[in-house]
């Protein structure tokens, strides 16, 4: 993955300079709190998921680190990809990822998420997860033991605490790149219900590569989303 710091951010001039001397202290406090309270989406893709039950429950007990499983993407911070990702699953992963509120973190567990692992010559599995989603860190192994999973989560916590874990911004700043790779796999008419460009504008995270040829292609065929009609019988 390219280094985040090299990507220039086009920051919106809000006119609000940070004048409060305590702002940085608060930031640190918030990051500390964030790192100690994380919800991990229960979404398991491959065989590596089998190491999660021991990691979560009394034997290795992830909750002592403040990490808890959560059942819906809208209330989760961490997306654990626990193994090989088939093309069909990848679509669902992207839909799920886009629904999660920022800041959000992706961890690829298992060699399969790094490079296809033992499915490297399979037509049906995606190879490099970080082409389609910004991945915070990979935990290699086939499959990694719970100790390794917890080690990885600790590293993520440290990164959050020190403010280094910001690949989720990359998804907004280089949306065109990610969308291009997604279109390459799923076809040109690929569309998700989340308006990433709109969100990027809202969060002030527009980068020079947020929009490009792929997002233009998306806009050509994009169908506006309509709310479901509520009906009572």
């Amino acid at each position: 993955m390219s280094d985040l710091k090299q990507i220039p951010v086009v920051a919106k001039e809000t006119g609000k300079e940070r004048t409060n001397p305590l702002a940085n202290v608060f930031d640190e406090l918030i990051r500390f709190a964030q790192a100690r309270s994380m919800f991990m989406l229960h979404y398991c893709t491959g065989c590596g998921a089998i190491e999660l039950p021991p990691a979560m429950t009394s034997r290795f007990d992830m909750e002592r680190l403040g990490i808890q499983p959560m059942v819906t993407p809208r209330q989760a911070d961490i997306l654990l990809i626990t193994g090989y990702v088939s093309i069909k699953t990848l679509k669902r992963i992207i839909l799920t990822y886009e629904q999660m509120p920022s800041p959000k973190y992706v961890i690829g567990i298992c060699s399969c998420t790094v490079n296809g692992g033992m499915y490297w010559q399979s037509y049906a599995t995606a190879k490099k997860l970080n082409e389609y989603l910004p991945v915070d860190l990979y935990i290699a192994g086939c499959m990694p033991r719970p100790e390794a999973v917890i080690e990885g989560l600790r590293l993520l916590m440290d990164n959050i605490k020190s403010g280094k874990s910001e690949p989720w911004k990359d998804y907004y700043q280089r949306y065109d790149y990610y969308l291009g790779n997604q279109q390459h796999l799923f076809g040109d008419d690929w569309q998700t219900p989340t308006d990433i460009i709109g969100e990027a504008e809202h969060f002030g995270l527009m980068g020079p590569e947020t929009e490009g040829e792929h997002t233009r292609l998306l806009q050509q065929h994009q169908q506006p989303l309509e709310p479901h009609k509520m009906r009572l019988k």
Partner: peptide
């Protein structure tokens, strides 16, 4: 005669 390996090489990039 479907060469999965060739398909993978054209479709995906490697780490």
């Amino acid at each position: 005669d479907f060469d999965a390996e060739a398909y993978v090489q054209d479709t995906f990039n490697w780490q």
